[in-house]
Design a protein around this nucleic acid. Structure first.
Lengths: 137, 137
DNA sequence: CTAAAGCCTATAGAATTAGTAGATTAATAA
DNA sequence: TTATTAATCTACTAATTCTATAGGCTTTAG
């Protein structure tokens, strides 16, 4: 299941990507437009800023803005920051690899084999999709 | 994330699929071979039986066995029984559809667009993979 | 009859999710 | 300078899900 955190994060990012100029947008504005709890959104945007996707400006007229062009932001980055690993299981993860306790041989494991395929196909989609493409809805 | 329930379930199913004949295999045997907690596995096999994938025999010499040939068991069925929806979000689910509260228009939603692609690719993999193929590891 | 094995219900600890609350800091405008 | 706006940060909590565990019941083979 996709967490609400990721869902809201993607919505907020596309909202920012749809802005003509790079002037900051306040959390409250995004929260109202996208029907997201203000305080929850606050923490989501903070993680996106700490991970280098967003910039922020405090005080009056402040808010959040994209640090890169929307066509330069791959969904792999967004997903890894908000949702964590792309893989459904750590033993096939490229960035978050972990061995399974119960599994004596990964190469002989049915789950490993299946989930590696799923990871590959998901990865391809997230890599080939940028924020810009998701805005043209 | 893939639940341990699903992981163990797939392992148990492939174990059964690797049997030469259709004589029942006890939970204890599978539990020991695959390093799965006996009682947890018990509940998993029970759900698989209740959902028509496994048959069982009680009493001495009893156990579980596949009801169909392993090449006739698609991973879509296994995943839906053990893990639930293939989709990462209910608004793109074919079998478990649900509207999002916050979303005024699905067709204009970035999350919907992205997750529909992921669902399609995962679905294709699960549909084109049978238990039989996962045994040849 | 007895041992083996599945069936069924209930429970419980841990982890994760989805928020809330409230105080603090920084920037801007009057 | 002061008031206002808006992000920052820490801490907490309620609900849900996950990963089991416990224990009694029922069925079957020998």
């Amino acid at each position: 299941m996709l967490s609400k955190k990721t869902k809201y994060g993607i919505k907020a990012l596309t909202y920012l990507a749809r802005q003509e100029n790079k002037t900051p947008v306040s959390i409250a504005t995004i929260s109202e437009s996208e029907n997201i709890s203000l305080k929850f959104l606050e923490s989501i945007l903070l993680t996106l800023r700490k991970n280098g996707l967003l910039g922020s400006k405090k005080g009056k007229g402040g808010g959040y803005y994209l640090l890169k062009e929307s066509n330069e932001i791959q969904m792999t980055a967004v997903m890894r920051i908000l949702e964590g690993p792309i893989s459904m299981i750590p033993c096939v993860s490229l960035n978050f690899y972990e061995k399974c306790d119960d599994c004596p041989d990964e190469n002989a494991c049915a789950v490993h084999k299946l989930m590696a395929q799923v990871r590959d196909s998901s990865l391809e989609i997230f890599r080939n999709t940028t924020l810009a493409e998701l805005c043209n809805c």
